[in-house]
Write a protein that binds this DNA or RNA. Structure first.
Length: 958
RNA sequence: GCAGGGGUGGCAGAGCCUGGCCAAAUGCGACGGGCUUAGGACCCGUUUCCGUAGAGGAUGCGAGAGUUCAAAUCUCUCCCCCUGCACCA
C-alpha cells in the first residue's frame, strides 16, 4: 500500500528544499505556464484542479523536455464579490455561513470576514496551501495579489496606455440597477444569483384621437404593428400622464412603468388617470392610420413594459383569447374586431400545426392554429396560452415571411429590424431597455430595474482596427484543443464596448475618473506579464513605479539611465526586470476554463495585441472542461463541491489529480467519484508493487515476451509523447498507467522475469507518470535506485528499433490460439465428449507460407495452380520438396475466398513453433489442458493439413 | 434566435480529421467460475443475434438519403441534447 500522506509530505519538502521549481533567466529555452488566477472568495475545491492541475502537468512535462519553466500564481481579490460577501456576513447570511462551513472554516474566522480585506487575505493563504498540497510546481516567489499597491500602479499604467491609444470611450449604457442601494447589480448581487438579462424592446407611440397625447406601448415584435387591431390596458391599474424630455406631446403609461422607466428616460408626471378611463379613448395606428379602440386585457401587467400592449390577434394567442373573451362578454367595441394577418409561414416547412393536420390558410389566423394545436379554448390557462405563444413566435421567427406591403417576403427577424428602424425614423417609436427575466430581486429585497448610465467609460473592443489585428494575430496563436478556435473567433468578433469602471468594489481607482473603481475583468487582462518581474521589483517603493518604468520594462521604451533617474528605481534592477520580461514572455501558455472564452480570454488577447510588441503576444491558450460530480457540474450553488483539502486527505493528491486532470479529454468534463479514484489508486499501487518486488526478478537472455514488452514500451513512449504535446492528457495517461498495468500483468503471466527489462520498463513509465502523479513517481523513481528527482529527469525517448509489429502480432497469435482452443473445448464438451487429455497445436509447413506470399502478390488462384502444376519444384523451391502436388493444389484452392485480403505470412514454421513452445505453459494454464506443439509434416493427426500459417491447427485428444 | 460543442454497445467513454486491420479500445456494471469460513479485494471467463471441433454469417454506431469495391468514419437533409449570449467573476 502507498502511504500518500507520507510521500506527499516527503517530496513536497524535498522539492522545496532543492528549490526545483524556482527559476530565473538562464541560457535554456524559457517556457511560462499560467492559469487564470483564482478569485479569492472561497478555498479551492477539487473542480479547480482541472485548470490549475492541467497547467501544472504542462509545466512539469515541458521541464522534462528540457525547457526552463516557471509556473507562477496570482490571486484575484478586486471586484465586487468580496465586497458583497462581507456585506452578507455583516447581515449574518445563513446560506453563506453554511457554504463556508463546508470548507471547515471556524466561527471565529467567519466573524472576522466582515472585513473584505480579511477575506482576501484569508483565502489567498488558504488557496496557496491547497495548491502546495496538490503538488503544483509553482514558483511561489512570483506570487501576486491584485489588491497590492504594485499591482495598482501597473493597472494605472495599462489604462493610461489604452487611453493614449484611443481605445477608451465614454457613453450611455444600460445596467441592472437597484433603486434602493443605488448601485449596479450583477449576478452576484441578486437573490438566487440570477443574472439580470437586459434586452431592447421597441416602444411605439399611438396617438390618441383628438388629443396631443400618446398611449405608449412596448413590444418585442414591432413588425406586427400592421396587424394591430386595438390596444390593451389593465382596467384595474393606475395610469399616469407624463412628459418625456426630448419628445413632443404627453404620454400615457402605467404608474408602475413610469417609476421603472425613470432610470432610462427623463420622465415627469403631469397627471393621473385610471385604466378604466383609457377605455373610452380611440387611437391611431401609426403604420396605417387606422383608428383602433382601447380594450381591457386580462393578461396585461402594469409593471411589465409600459402597462399598455399592442393587440395582434392574428399572431398573438393572448390577444386572440382576450378578444374572444370580450366578445363573449358582449363588449361592443370588441365585436367588430377582425384579426389582420401580417406574415405567412413558409408552406412545406415542418411546422407543428401542419404536422398535426391543422390548416392555417383557412382561418387566416396563425394564433388560432397554435391554440388549436395545444387544444386551448377560450378558457385556457395562461400557461397554455403562453406555450402557444412561445411555439408560434419560434416558428414564425424561423419560417415566417412577411405578407404586407413594403415588407413582402422578408423573414421575421429582418422585418423586425426594418420596422424598428422605420419607426425610429418617423418618430413613432424608440428603443427601450427591459429586463427579460423580470422580476429580479436585489439581495436587499428591492426589485431590480434597468438604468441607463450616462458617462460610462468603456474599453472599445469594437474598434475596427483593433478587432482586425486581434483576429489576425489570433491565427498565429496555438489553441488547445483546436476545436475551440471557432468559439474564440466568434468571441473576438462579438465583443464590443465593455464597461471599464464601476461605482464600487475593491481595486484600483480609474485614472480618468477617480470616483470609479476599475472593473475587475479589465484589471486582469495582462497581469501575467507581472509574474516575470514581481520577484525582482518586490522591494521597490510602489510610488516609484511610474508609467515610464513600465514603458521601459514592458515596451523597451526610453533610455534606461533616464528612466532610472526619473523614477528613482535602481538602474541595475530595472535592467534585470526588462531582461526577465523579454526572456519569459516570449513563450507562454495560458490556461483556463471554457466560461472564460467570452470575456477574460478574449480580453486577454485584445489587450496583449494592443499593448505589447509582437514578440510577446500570447503563444498558446488552453481551455479545459469542468469537473462533474454524479453527472452534475461541481459548483457552490449546487452544493456538491468537495473541498480540495478533503479530496486530498481522503484519496491522496496524485489519485485526485489523476482522476480530475486525466479522467477525460481536455475539453470534456471529467467525472469525480470514489469509484474512479479507486481505479486509479489500484493501478498506481500495482506499478508501485511491481517496483517494490523488482529485487526478486531474474535475468538472462531476452525471450520473445521480453521483446514484446520492449516493443509495447517504446510504442507507448511514442504515443504518450505525441499526446502530451497537444495536451491529450487522457490518452497520455491511459498509455502511461492503464495500459502499463495491463502489459505488466501479461508480461508476468507469460512468465516474464527479466529484471533488466522490468526496470527499463518501470523507469520509463514512472517518468511518464511524473507530470500527473508527481509524488508517487518520485517515490517509485527512488525505489528503482535513482537518486535525482523524477521531476527534473529527461522525458523518455522512444527507441524505434525496439518497436515491432511482428513481435506484437506474434503475441496476438498466442491469444488467438487460446480463444480458438476454448471454443473447441466448449463445443466438444457440450457434445458430451468429456475432459480432453491433450491438445495438439499443429504448425503449418513453410511451403504454405510461400504459397500465401504468392497469393498475396498474385491474387489469381487459377494462375498459381497452373504454375504449381507445371513446375512445382521451381515455384515452391526447397520448402516444397516434400509436399505432394495434390495437397498443394487443394490448399491453394482453399484460399480462393480469401485471396483478396491475403497477406504474406510473417513467421516461419520454426518461429511459430518456438513461440508456441515458449508460451506453452501459459496456454495450457489458460485452457486447462496439456498442449503439445508439432510440425504439420510430423503430425499423425488427420486434421494436420488444416494448419495455416499464423493459424495452427488445433486437435483435441480425448 | 445566434454561436460553439455533441448524439457510439446496460452506463461512462475512445474511434471520426487520415474510410478497410471495428462487433467497435478502456473503465464501470451485470452474469458465471476460481480464491476464501464468509464478505471485500484479487484472478479467469461471458456480456447483439445465429451458426459451429475453432478459424463463419447477419444486424449494428441519433434518423434518412448519397459517394465508394468498402462508411461509426466522407457528403447532404432532418431530429434531439448540452453550453454561452456581456459589464459579471
Amino acid at each position: 500500500m502507498i502511504d500518500y500522506k507520507e510521500i506527499e509530505r516527503k517530496w513536497q519538502a524535498e522539492w522545496e528544499k532543492a528549490r526545483v521549481f524556482e527559476s530565473d533567466v538562464t541560457p535554456k529555452n524559457p517556457y511560462m505556464v499560467f492559469a487564470a488566477f483564482p478569485y479569492v472568495n472561497a478555498p479551492q475545491h477539487i473542480g479547480h484542479v482541472r485548470t490549475f492541475g492541467t497547467a501544472d502537468v504542462l509545466a512539469r512535462y515541458k521541464r522534462m523536455r528540457g525547457f526552463n519553466v516557471i509556473y507562477p500564481m496570482g490571486f484575484h481579490a478586486t471586484g465586487t464579490p468580496i465586497l458583497g460577501f462581507a456585506k452578507r456576513l455583516q447581515k449574518g447570511d445563513a446560506d453563506l455561513i453554511r457554504e463556508l462551513k463546508v470548507f471547515h472554516i471556524s466561527d471565529e474566522e467567519i466573524a472576522k470576514m466582515t472585513d473584505p480585506l480579511h477575506i482576501a487575505d484569508y483565502f489567498t493563504k488558504e488557496i496557496e496551501s491547497g495548491m502546495r498540497a496538490a503538488g503544483y510546481s509553482i514558483d511561489w516567489r512570483r506570487k501576486l495579489v491584485s489588491t497590492e499597491p504594485v499591482f495598482s500602479k501597473f493597472i494605472e499604467w495599462q489604462i493610461g496606455l489604452l487611453n493614449s491609444k484611443g481605445l477608451l470611450t465614454k457613453g450611455r449604457h444600460p445596467v441592472g440597477w437597484c433603486p434602493n442601494e443605488d448601485n449596479a447589480v450583477g449576478m452576484h448581487d441578486t437573490k438566487h444569483d440570477v443574472e439580470p438579462e437586459i434586452d431592447q424592446e421597441t416602444a411605439v407611440k399611438f396617438r390618441i384621437d383628438g388629443e396631443d397625447a400618446f398611449l405608449l406601448c412596448t413590444t418585442f415584435r414591432p413588425e406586427t404593428i400592421m396587424g394591430v387591431t386595438n390596444l390593451f390596458v389593465n382596467a384595474e391599474s393606475a395610469y399616469v400622464i407624463c412628459a418625456i424630455e426630448g419628445m413632443a406631446g404627453k404620454y400615457y403609461l402605467s404608474k408602475a412603468a413610469s417609476e421603472n422607466l425613470k432610470y432610462q428616460l427623463r420622465i415627469s408626471q403631469v397627471g393621473e388617470v385610471s385604466g378604466k378611463e383609457l377605455l373610452s379613448k380611440g387611437c391611431i395606428n401609426p403604420s396605417n392610420a387606422a383608428r383602433i379602440p382601447v380594450l381591457p386585457g386580462f393578461f396585461v401587467k402594469e409593471d411589465v413594459g409600459t402597462g399598455i400592449v399592442m393587440s395582434v390577434p392574428a399572431h398573438a394567442p393572448f390577444d386572440y383569447i382576450a378578444i374572444e373573451r370580450l366578445k363573449a362578454g358582449g363588449n361592443a367595441a370588441a365585436s367588430g374586431i377582425m384579426p389582420i394577418k401580417v406574415l405567412d409561414i413558409d408552406i412545406g416547412r415542418p411546422v407543428a400545426t401542419r404536422q398535426a393536420g391543422i390548416s392555417q390558410s383557412a382561418s387566416d389566423m396563425p394564433a388560432l392554429s397554435y391554440l388549436k394545436l395545444l387544444k386551448a379554448d377560450v378558457n385556457a390557462s395562461d400557461a397554455l396560452i403562453e406555450e402557444a405563444t412561445r411555439l408560434e413566435y419560434k416558428e414564425e421567427s424561423h419560417w415566417g415571411r412577411m405578407a404586407v406591403p413594403g415588407y413582402e417576403g422578408m423573414s421575421e427577424p429582418e422585418a423586425r429590424e426594418k420596422v424598428k428602424a422605420d419607426l425610429g425614423k418617423s418618430g413613432d417609436g424608440f428603443g427601450l431597455y427591459v429586463l427579460t427575466n423580470s422580476p429580479v430581486y436585489c439581495r436587499c429585497g428591492y426589485r431590480v430595474v434597468v438604468k441607463v448610465v450616462e458617462d460610462q467609460w468603456f474599453i472599445n473592443y469594437g474598434d475596427k482596427e483593433w478587432k482586425a489585428s486581434t483576429l489576425e494575430a489570433f491565427r498565429g496563436i496555438s489553441v488547445v484543443p483546436e476545436k475551440t478556435r471557432k468559439a474564440f473567433e466568434f468571441a473576438i468578433g462579438w465583443i464590443d464596448l465593455r464597461a471599464v469602471a464601476r461605482a464600487q468594489g475593491l481595486g484600483t481607482r480609474f485614472p480618468l475618473d477617480r470616483d470609479k473603481i476599475i472593473e475587475s475583468l479589465s484589471d486582469s487582462t495582462i497581469y501575467m506579464s507581472m509574474y516575470t518581474i514581481i520577484n525582482i521589483i518586490r522591494s521597490v517603493d510602489p510610488g516609484k513605479l511610474k508609467p515610464e518604468f513600465f514603458d521601459y520594462v514592458f515596451l523597451g521604451k526610453g533610455d534606461p539611465n533616464a528612466v532610472a533617474a526619473g523614477t528613482g528605481v535602481d538602474y541595475g534592477l530595472m535592467r534585470k526586470a526588462r531582461e526577465s520580461f523579454v526572456y519569459w514572455y516570449a513563450n507562454t501558455s495560458s490556461h483556463s476554463s471554457p466560461d472564460l472564452i467570452f470575456n477574460h480570454l478574449t480580453m486577454y488577447l485584445y489587450n496583449h495585441i494592443a499593448i505589447f510588441d509582437k514578440a510577446y503576444w500570447p503563444k498558446q491558450v488552453v481551455v479545459n472542461g469542468t469537473v462533474l460530480s454524479e453527472g452534475e457540474k461541481m459548483s457552490k450553488s449546487l452544493g456538491n463541491i468537495v473541498p480540495l483539502s478533503d479530496g486530498i486527505s481522503k484519496h491522496g493528491a496524485d489519485p485526485l489529480r489523476f482522476v480530475v486532470i486525466a479522467g477525460a479529454d481536455l475539453f470534456s468534463d471529467s467525472e469525480y467519484n470514489d469509484n474512479a479514484v479507486n481505479g486509479v489508486k489500484e493501478r498506481l499501487e500495482y506499478v508501485y508493487a511491481a517496483a517494490a518486488s523488482l529485487g526478486e526478478s531474474g535475468s538472462g537472455a531476452l525471450k520473445h515476451i521480453d521483446f514484446w514488452l520492449y516493443s509495447k514500451l517504446n510504442r507507448k513512449v511514442e504515443t504518450a509523447t505525441r499526446a502530451m504535446e497537444i495536451l491529450e492528457l487522457r490518452s497520455a495517461s491511459t498509455e502511461a498507467l492503464y495500459n502499463s498495468v495491463i502489459e505488466l500483468k501479461r508480461y508476468f503471466a507469460r512468465g516474464g522475469t527479466n529484471g533488466i527489462v522490468i526496470r527499463d520498463y518501470l523507469s520509463a513509465v514512472t517518468l511518464m507518470l511524473s507530470p500527473i502523479a508527481p509524488h508517487v513517481s518520485e517515490e517509485i523513481w527512488h525505489m528503482l535506485g535513482n537518486t535525482g528527482f523524477a521531476s527534473t529527469e529527461k522525458w523518455p525517448t522512444a527507441d524505434g528499433s525496439m518497436i515491432s509489429d511482428k513481435v506484437e502480432r506474434m503475441e496476438n497469435l498466442v491469444d488467438d490460439v487460446i480463444r480458438d482452443a476454448r471454443q473447441v473445448i466448449e463445443i466438444t464438451s457440450r457434445k458430451g465428449r468429456g475432459q480432453p487429455k491433450e491438445m495438439l497445436l499443429i504448425v503449418a509447413e513453410d511451403w504454405k507460407r510461400k504459397v500465401n506470399g504468392m497469393v498475396a502478390a498474385e491474387k489469381n488462384i487459377g494462375k498459381i495452380i497452373e504454375k504449381v502444376k507445371t513446375d512445382k519444384e521451381r515455384v515452391l523451391g526447397e520448402e516444397g520438396k516434400n509436399a505432394g502436388t495434390t495437397s498443394v493444389i487443394e490448399y491453394i484452392a482453399g484460399l480462393a475466398k480469401k485471396a483478396a485480403e491475403m497477406k504474406p505470412a510473417e513467421m516461419s514454421q520454426g518461429e511459430e513453433i518456438e513461440l508456441l513452445d515458449e508460451a506453452g505453459s501459459y496456454i495450457s494454464g489458460a485452457i486447462g489442458v496439456k498442449i503439445k506443439v508439432e510440425k504439420e509434416s510430423d503430425s499423425r493427426s488427420e486434421r494436420a493439413k488444416r494448419a495455416m500459417p499464423g493459424k495452427p491447427c488445433i486437435d483435441v485428444i480425448f
